[in-house]
């Protein structure tokens, strides 16, 4: 029974990783940009939620609701004024600029909030659990996983069912032709990054309530997000969810053997997928 329990915990943890990864996947899918500051932006959003919930005494869920539009604006501006300048055939500028942003965010947060690790308190929900068939699962991990499902379903609906989504796909496929059809790629990119920041805020809510975080937590979140994207296959959001779940299960299984092996087991699962299927398990696009 305990192995099934471990796997279920891993699947639920995978929901969190899928949330980390969805924003990264979205931005890469539309503009082939890999944001090395993605993890630090998640941590930034977590601090924003912490600040709103502690300073104004808000419920963290409500605080995230306020943080989301703020993060959207920040993402929009970041893309429009900074990252758009780096896009082109050369992969070096976007990588180095986002790496610089990562360093700036980490050290800015260190100055603002010190190196102490924090946690967003959610009161009674924290330890609450519910019966799921014969199993007993934590309520927050379950909500996290359901949120991941909702976010990915919502993003897919947006991309394949709306005018904005059509513009996303058109710019992704052929930026010049999309421009001729009256789409302004610069704005589309800015909206996409803004949207990714909304997803980042949701991820941050569950990161902050699940475990401690500090200003240097970003890079490892980036790595988990990246692994989930690659395991799932580039360009597929449902693949990203599957990638997150595989990563989560590998980590909890590793931790069940030896707590020190949790992270290592996740990385090894990623490397194994890389060897067996270099393009991921569910690749969509040829990049």
């Amino acid at each position: 029974m305990s192995i099934i329990d471990t796997i279920v915990q891993g699947v639920l943890l995978g929901g969190l990783y899928a949330l980390f990864a969805a924003g990264l996947s979205l931005v890469f899918g539309i503009m082939r940009l890999v944001n090395l500051a993605h993890g630090d932006l998640i941590v930034l959003a977590a601090f924003l939620i912490l600040l709103l919930s502690s300073a104004l005494g808000l419920n963290p869920f409500f605080a995230a609701l306020i943080a989301a539009p703020l993060m959207f604006v920040a993402g929009w501006a970041l893309q429009y004024f900074v990252l758009n300048r780096t896009l082109g055939n050369d992969v070096l500028p976007p990588l180095l600029v986002t790496f610089g942003i990562s360093t700036v965010l980490q050290n800015g947060l260190l100055e603002a909030f010190s190196a102490d690790s924090r946690r967003v308190s959610i009161g009674a929900l924290e330890g609450a659990s519910t019966g799921l068939g014969p199993l007993n699962v934590g309520l927050m991990p379950l909500i996290t996983f359901l949120s991941a499902l909702t976010v990915i379903f919502g993003l897919n609906q947006l991309i394949y069912r709306t005018a904005l989504g059509r513009a996303f796909r058109a710019t992704s496929d052929d930026i010049v032709t999309a421009g001729l059809m009256g789409i302004r790629p610069q704005r589309i990119f800015a909206v996409a990054t803004g949207l990714a920041m909304v997803v980042v805020t949701i991820a941050a809510l569950y990161l902050g309530t699940r475990a401690n975080f500090d200003p240097t937590s970003g890079p490892s979140r980036l790595i988990y997000a990246f692994e989930a994207v690659i395991i799932g296959g580039l360009g597929s959001l449902w693949g990203t969810l599957a990638g997150g779940v595989i990563l989560g299960v590998a980590q909890t299984l590793g931790a069940a053997v030896n707590p020190e092996w949790q992270i290592l087991a996740g990385h090894l699962a990623f490397l194994a997928v890389l060897v067996i299927k270099p393009r991921g398990l569910f690749p969509r696009a040829v990049d």
């Binding site: 890999v34 490892s220 790595i223 060897v275 270099p278």
Partner: peptide, 20 residues
């Protein structure tokens, strides 16, 4: 491992290997 990844993904791939 890392040469299976292109461009930006190579960058993060090398980071994962360093962590391992």
């Amino acid at each position: 491992f890392t040469f299976r990844l292109q461009g930006p993904y190579f960058a993060i791939g090398t980071w994962v290997v360093a962590e391992v």
